[in-house]
Design a binder for these strands. Sequence first.
DNA 1: TAATAAATAGAAACGAGTTCTATATAAGAA
DNA 2: TTCTTATATAGAACTCGTTTCTATTTATTA
Lengths: 137, 137
Amino acid sequence: MFLDILLAKLRTNKLKQTPKRKAILKLFLDKRCFLSPEEIFVVIKNGFKKASFPSIYRNLDELYKIGILLKVQKPDRRLYYALCTAEDTGHHHHIVCVKCGKIGEFSECLLLNKKKVGGFKILDHFLQLEGICNECS
Amino acid sequence: MFLDILLAKLRTNKLKQTPKRKAILKLFLDKRCFLSPEEIFVVIKNGFKKASFPSIYRNLDELYKIGILLKVQKPDRRLYYALCTAEDTGHHHHIVCVKCGKIGEFSECLLLNKKKVGGFKILDHFLQLEGICNECS
DNA sequence: TAATAAATAGAAACGAGTTCTATATAAGAA
DNA sequence: TTCTTATATAGAACTCGTTTCTATTTATTA
């Protein structure tokens, strides 16, 4: 089962398997879409007696850092997280549909593998794509 | 001259040609890259006795609304604006030196010439590079 | 079961961006 | 030029998503 794989990943990264972490992972497995910290907070608030935003934010960031979640920012200037389905947890980019806002993910880096350009040695890059998804076109 | 065209666009849209608006436009014409409100504020602060963030933000938004500027959001969760180069000649990118802040420009697009990726049809992209310039390395 | 390292809740802080309002100024009219 | 009026401005105060701080609680292991 997929949840077991995620829980194993927690152990591998020395993160405790707390009830709330499990609830967050189950929520992402159930919904299979991008969720904001606020949406997750509401669910946790309903399932437990106590809940706090800092824990939600920290958990989301930790899950992002160990490659379980991916993180994007929508034009509403909020963070959104979703299960990362890329086989490798390495470098990958996202593309946003200009019509429906759906976010696609691809691990293929579109950049030519150049080390130097215009007299500058390239250290890092930020690539943001806009497009139209299959359903909207 | 390009500045005249932009100023005419202000008049067309019934926006006054204030000294600060002119300074902002000149800055974009000079830099030819994405700038944050903060970066613009610093320049305006140096060129005038007074400056305020609300004016910068409102001006950038107005220039964006009448099509003079583009607006994007980078992962640092800040807004960035750049001249809309629709009439401008060639597709080009910028690279910023992480040490001295110098901005390089190159017309060669580093993106693989893909039209579609992950089920999305690519319409537009924004690429910002970071690196080290010749003098700093 | 006890030890301990990590996770939590709650309050407070942070910071980019926005709203409010009185004052200043660009641009057209007299 | 001077006057008039609508727009632009500075500065203070605010918004709100996100982060930091800290005392308490809890999952893990020994």
